[in-house]
Write a protein that binds this DNA or RNA. Structure first.
Lengths: 318, 318
DNA sequence: AAACCTTGTTTGTCCTAGACAAATTACGAA
DNA sequence: TTCGTAATTTGTCTAGGACAAACAAGGTTT
């Protein structure tokens, strides 16, 4: 195959680095330094795109572009993740073997076996423990594997897609919500990870909340409209680590302004570490914390209905 | 509420119009003409964002920006869709009442009732007819309602999310594929509509194909890697009407280059109308055509196994 | 009238290069 | 160490120019 070259737009799509950033890096650091096509426009060779992808991955781990771009190609592969993540899955280390087994099925591209393995665990543990003790740690584990480059993008996609299916299927078996509180679940544009939202939905639905799943990538103005139309008590958002940290607070402030003051805004996901919540926005660093807050809220509003609700959750989860 | 203003990045997210386009329109047509914040940067009032959203919708119907941007605000609302779409759902007009009923449930924001109605129809008609006669026309109907502004963005999201669930749930009941052909289903970045892919998957799985669902928004290079890793015989992509037409051929050419020559590239979805397929890429203008092509392909490769396969499908669908 | 080619207009994307604020690090003092 | 300040890094915004591809309009031929 002779040199497939990529336009700047194609590189933006493939790496997630904006055109502005690509041009700026070229100006400042001399990399990437694309060839030019007949029209004088940038034409990136596949090798540069590959290196950019690698750099992006390392940046998501906390490395700084200035260092990475100065580094020779060979040095990149040897770089270890930087200690941004607190403790890095120590709390799941106990059961790491079970997770490893599941991940192995994905890496063997055996979709059917993976699905069956998940369903088996679901049947054995029940919904709540399945979500908290299996899916949540597994998702985190996969996220870390992705950051370390131990898993391909398409393997992560397959994992997400299959896990989503099992979760959704399990949820259809759940009884309808009590009608209160009404929780609207979604994510902002650019944030396409939905697994976190599904886990929250599963646990919230177990607690009797009325969940309104809107999928991902809702424009802020539309989130506000939806909250009004559905008379939502709570809007729940999720941010993954892949989401650019710096954009989180301004977006939340904007959404807070657009929402009715009495609508609560709950935010979770692995992307909110080290981010400080704006006024009027509640951050939850774990699934457990979110569910607990929901039960407390319910007891405050309808103390007599407390009998419906499960006890605060035992065990750790994220 | 005091004038919430939007940065150019926020407008890009909310409307889907690129920063370049926003600036160019301002230069050429004098709209949008945002205010400036303390740093001299564009700050769009909510009213302008709203009008931009409306303009975008009309453009997706085939109107030209030059005309729209010259028009006064009041004239916009009165504009009818331009006849780009061939015949516009005449072929579903017969059963339009059943569809209208379903859509009504969505517009009443009654998620549970909608889900139940769908499940009831699935049970009554069986998978194949459910997909072809209910889900496909309904999706098209909703798409047209969206283009006409008769449905809100968040209503469309809710529709998609709930319909996805019913379809996926139904598919888990299907037996595993025969192992051949192996079909990899996904979509390119920027293309987040997944319903079309799910419908294809459902029908292909019925025919015994081994489906590998990777969700949406896969970078082209990753699609190629996945096809290789999974030894896919066919890569199936879907483009919705929302996807910018002009970007389709170059992206397909690029992907065609990245894929092994023996891997087939099948493309469908409402977005490919009036687009000419590049060499080595097969376009399917309807679900039916895709399924038919699959059965013919199977008979060519394994004539003796023909007994497994269903007859070519009766009835129309898209 | 329908199919075709040619010409002019519209429109999106890419280009360069400068500026600056916010985030991060480095440094020095308490 | 812990804190506050200065220096640096880094992403995003701005301006206007250029151009090719898409599209409409008009004229010619079948």
């Amino acid at each position: 195959m002779i040199s497939t070259r990529f336009s700047i737009a194609a590189v933006e799509r493939d790496t997630g680095l904006s055109k502005d950033v690509l041009r700026m890096w070229e100006r400042r650091y001399g990399f990437p330094l694309p060839e030019r096509d007949a029209n004088g426009e940038r034409a990136y060779p596949a090798a540069q795109v590959e290196r950019l992808r690698q750099i992006k991955r390392l940046m998501d781990q906390g490395h700084r572009p200035g260092k990475l771009l100065a580094l020779p190609v060979e040095a990149l592969a040897a770089l270890a993740p930087r200690q941004t993540r607190s403790t890095r899955s120590e709390h799941i280390a106990e059961d790491v073997h079970g997770l490893e087994d599941l991940l192995l099925l994905i890496k063997q591209h055996d979709a059917n076996a993976y699905t069956q393995a998940l369903q088996q665990r679901l049947a054995r543990h029940g919904m709540q423990r399945f979500v908290q003790d299996i899916v949540a740690p597994l998702t985190q584990y996969v996220g870390e594997a992705w950051e370390d480059g131990r898993i391909e993008v398409f393997e992560e996609h397959l994992f997400t897609e299959l896990t989503k299916r099992v979760l959704r299927q399990a949820m259809t078996a759940l009884p309808a919500g009590l009608g209160s509180p009404r929780v609207l679940l979604t994510s902002v544009p650019e944030e396409q990870h939905v697994l976190g939202l599904l886990m929250v939905e599963a646990l919230f639905a177990l607690e009797g909340a009325e969940c309104i799943p809107l999928g991902t990538q809702m424009p802020l103005t539309e989130i506000a409209r939806a909250a009004q139309a559905h008379q939502a008590d709570i809007v729940a958002l999720s941010f993954s680590t892949a989401f650019p940290h710096r954009q989180i607070p301004p977006q939340l402030e904007q959404l807070r302004q657009l929402l009715a003051p009495e609508t609560e805004l709950w935010v979770g996901g692995s992307g909110i570490h080290r981010v400080t919540p704006p006024a009027g926005v509640k951050f939850f660093s774990s699934l457990k914390a979110g569910v607990q807050s929901l039960t407390e809220r319910a007891q405050k509003k309808h103390p007599e209905a407390g009998a419906f609700l499960h006890m605060p959750l035992p065990g750790a989860a994220d």
